[in-house]
């Protein structure tokens, strides 16, 4: 390859690389509100820590400051506005990158001065123009952030709904014997109002650990909510056998039996009142005990 051709080839390559740089520079990705808040928090020193930014610290002050930053970002304040607010409140020392005013200007000038002095000193007389040019270029690069105007505030709404149920379903399918995953999935289904499916998942969890009080209760609760109270009875009976003095089991089982006119329901509810004399449900339970048979609005409170 001749020298001329090689030079042309390298030139073309450099042009291609520049296109890559320009594409990256032209990226229209406006930072999300969350990213914006994080950038601000990263530029602030946690006042009560050593060498930690507000973004990384778990100190109470830092947590409070993060909340404040979130707030202001969502109100539409620009990062510069928020930073200068903090500087007014806490002084120059709160900024991890000192602003170009007051004593902070030193930290803009010193690096530039170091670069220029080194460039001038190193090059000797013959090449001083080149050296000054390089020095000036490096200095300009360091100073660029000072000259670029602050980004215009733009609030980006982003409350992406994530389907945790899908995530948990696939995880639970991958590990069918995992109690925590089953229970997590069932909880998620129950709070989404899909109590029928929740009941099935609780059933799976219940099979894995029939002795777990919480699973038994949640399982029964889901069965009752989805209108399958009869299936809930044996679950509660076995929980009652295991935890005879558990208030929540007493209440739930007592109510169910009472609904079915069984006198044992009353016994269980009385036992419940003995155990929980301060219960908020006391009045409702007492009404039930006085009036035989199911009242108009039968409670299916799961305790």
């Amino acid at each position: 390859m001749s020298r001329g051709r090689a030079l042309t080839a390298v030139g073309v390559c450099i042009l291609v690389a520049l296109v890559g740089v320009i594409i990256a520079l032209a990226a229209p990705s406006a930072p999300s509100a969350e990213q914006r808040a994080r950038d601000v928090a990263e530029s602030l020193r946690c006042p009560t820590c050593v060498a930690e930014s507000v973004a990384d610290s778990q100190a109470p002050v830092a947590i409070a400051m993060r909340a404040l930053i979130d707030d202001r970002v969502h109100r539409g304040d620009s990062p510069d506005q928020i930073l200068s607010w903090f500087r007014r409140q806490y002084g120059e020392g709160i900024l991890l990158d000192p602003g170009a005013s007051g004593i902070g200007i030193l930290f803009w000038v010193i690096p530039v001065a170091i670069v220029i002095v080194a460039a001038l000193g190193a090059a000797g007389r013959r090449r001083w123009r080149l050296a000054t040019f390089l020095g000036a270029a490096a200095a300009a690069l360091i100073l660029i952030p000072l000259l670029t105007p602050g980004e215009s505030p733009a609030v980006v709404a982003e409350e992406d709904q994530v389907d945790g149920i899908d995530l948990l379903t696939s995880a639970a399918e991958a590990h069918p014997g995992d109690l925590d995953l089953r229970r997590g999935l069932a909880d998620a289904l129950a709070s989404a109002g899909r109590s029928d499916e929740a009941a099935d998942e609780y059933a799976a969890a219940y099979r894995l650990d029939p002795g777990d009080r919480r699973i038994a209760l949640d399982y029964a609760g889901a069965l009752i909510t989805s209108g399958r109270a009869d299936e809930a009875l044996p679950v509660l009976e076995s929980a009652h056998a295991r935890y005879p003095d558990d208030a929540a089991v007493l209440l739930l089982l007592g109510t169910l039996l009472d609904d079915r006119g069984s006198p044992r329901g009353d016994d269980l509810l009385r036992r419940y009142l003995e155990l929980e004399p301060e219960s908020a449900l006391r009045d409702a339970v007492e009404t039930r005990l006085v009036a035989p048979g199911p009242p108009a609005s039968s409670g299916t409170e799961s305790g």
Binding site: A51, S53, E92, L95, P98, I103, P145
Partner: peptide
């Protein structure tokens, strides 16, 4: 005067 020099300064 207190001045803090942290990651943003070094990065820039």
């Amino acid at each position: 005067a207190t001045v803090s020099i942290g990651p943003p300064w070094y990065g820039r």
